[in-house]
Design a protein around this nucleic acid. Structure first.
Lengths: 235, 235
DNA sequence: GCAGAGATTTCACCTGTGTGAATGATCGCA
DNA sequence: TGCGATCATTCACACAGGTGAAATCTCTGC
């Protein structure tokens, strides 16, 4: 059940069989299923548990009164939505599904128990959180400084690498169950503009992405290097 | 010395005299001084300690090869640069001063000691970190969805409120020792464009900001509500 | 008191991206 | 088998914001 999370964390620390066992256990109870385009938790709600994505894609987003929407980050299998969220009274943003999603609700107690008993897990979760905030910084740069072409190229590279980390790629290709409107909401572009630029990425990209945070920011523009199939995973 | 940090944390938890004493102590040792426009720590360096800003302004930024620069966040007195940074091998971004800065370097051991012995401080630092990441999310929305006018209005409100939290405002005004180029780097705008829009903010704004995360995103644009003096604090 | 660097302000012009609308594809479902 | 909904694609046009350059203005140091 928790194989994606375990695979991801093992990029940073070596987990013992007991560590893995404990994670599996935590991910087994309280599994919930959501359809596509549903809110898992909405702005203003108070968070009750940490959600571990087992299957499917989701996103964190914020919506302005006039309808403008910004996707703040994507969640793919193995991702934890806010392992520290209990401190806050209420959510300042929403989390919604993109595809149908299967997730495990992990209660505060279970999580505290986990970090109390398994120091390697604690360390790995710290690292996971730091990587997440580093990605968040990269998005800030993406939105603030890069052109449309570069933004989309960079985002595709990020997602490809994250999927590869949890073993959800095949060679140079991966599934990308995200509509153009959603790509636009994530990159701060209009849906109409996404296509012309996404086409540009497809033309230019042939290199393989390397490293954790690819930075294709030169004047030459982004090279995606990812053969992306727009296709939903078979259930 | 640590009065700004203490004042900020007390918005969330009530600190005992001993808590405050401990914070004061930690901020007293290893004080360093930087000039304006210097790097405190650069991309690629490995972080050695947590920096507590005592006086002056700094910022976190990332620079692309072709010179484009994105300011990712501002630091004002009372702010901690990354209370969790030790987990990372090397910095993926730089921290540089804007004005001359006085800061306290807090070592890993001192910080761990602090969080071990003073649970209220631990809780307050957790809260501080969550607020910081919430601000980071807000920047993502700012850069991705808002117009130039709204971006600048929102940024000015944020800074005013943060300064008020640490007691660095006077009535409706505060110091803003930030150049237009820096405002542009933070909002993803060109310096030339900042001025026309900043002028717009000055004209439109007369309301007082309210709440922690002001959201002036309606079609009417941003209202800054802050009378800002562009002036360096006397040394 | 002067020189030089950095910051602000203004201008004219250009371009990247948004808007709105119309047309085709694709897919789930009755 | 066909209907409706959701996405993708394309086009023509509009405009927000970028670019480059030049003219002040304001410090700061000598």
């Amino acid at each position: 059940m928790a194989q994606h999370l375990i695979r991801k964390l093992e990029h940073f620390v070596r987990l013992s069989p007991e560590d893995k066992q404990a994670l599996e256990e935590a991910a087994r109870r309280n599994v919930r299923v959501f359809g596509a385009h549903q809110d898992i938790i909405s702005e203003g709600d108070s968070p009750e548990h940490v959600n571990l994505i087992l299957e499917g894609w989701a996103c964190r987003y914020k919506q302005l009164e006039d309808g403008r929407r910004q996707i703040i980050s994507f969640f793919v299998p193995g991702d934890l939505c806010d392992p520290h969220v209990f401190v806050l009274r209420e959510m300042d943003h929403s989390i919604g599904t993109i595809t149908p999603v299967r997730l495990a609700e992990i209660s505060r107690d279970v999580l505290l128990n986990l970090t109390d008993r398994y120091p390697r897990i604690t360390k790995a979760l710290w690292w996971e959180m730091l990587v997440t905030t580093a990605i968040q910084r990269e998005w800030t740069v993406n939105l603030g400084q890069r052109t449309a072409l570069e933004r989309i190229g960079h985002l595709l590279c990020e997602l490809f690498i994250r999927l590869r980390t949890v073993g959800l790629t095949e060679g140079d290709s991966c599934l990308l169950p995200v509509t153009q409107v959603e790509l636009g909401d994530a990159t701060g572009l209009s849906n109409v503009h996404v296509i012309s630029r996404a086409a540009g990425v497809a033309e230019q990209g042939a290199d393989r992405p390397e490293g954790q945070a690819p930075d294709h920011s030169g004047p030459g523009g982004a090279s995606a290097g990812v053969a992306v199939q727009r296709e939903l995973p078979a259930p």
